[in-house]
Amino acid sequence: MTLKPTLRENKRYVAFKASCEKGKLREEEAKRAVYSGLLGLLGELGIARTRARFLEFDEEKQTGIVQCERSGVEEVKAAIILISEANGGKARFEVVRTSGLIKKLKAFLELESRA
């Protein structure tokens, strides 16, 4: 039996771009940095409430996508913005775009990388 429309979760996808002083990040390192940032700002309960989840990371383009609940978008974005280190060095995680459709977001990231 499917959930009522009012009860189903409203997903949002947040795209970010990573840059690190130690060179390109691997997916595992980016994932660790993002989860560390989320835990640091939101805590375990906050991550549970926002249903924040690391989805994917492109090691070539150094861009990634985090999934979260619609109500927690600003908090998840802030957590990503406040990440200052990854892989033992200084890093910058820049929030590029937010979308309700992952397909649109991936298309946007593809366009950005070509530009």
């Binding site: 840059s19 002083e21 974005k77 802030a78 913005i81 200052s84 910058r92 820049e94």
Partner: peptide, 18 residues
Amino acid sequence: KNEFEEKNKNELETIGII
């Protein structure tokens, strides 16, 4: 103080909302 600490306009707005 360095390029890794720079934030764009949207990011600063997000912090303001938080």
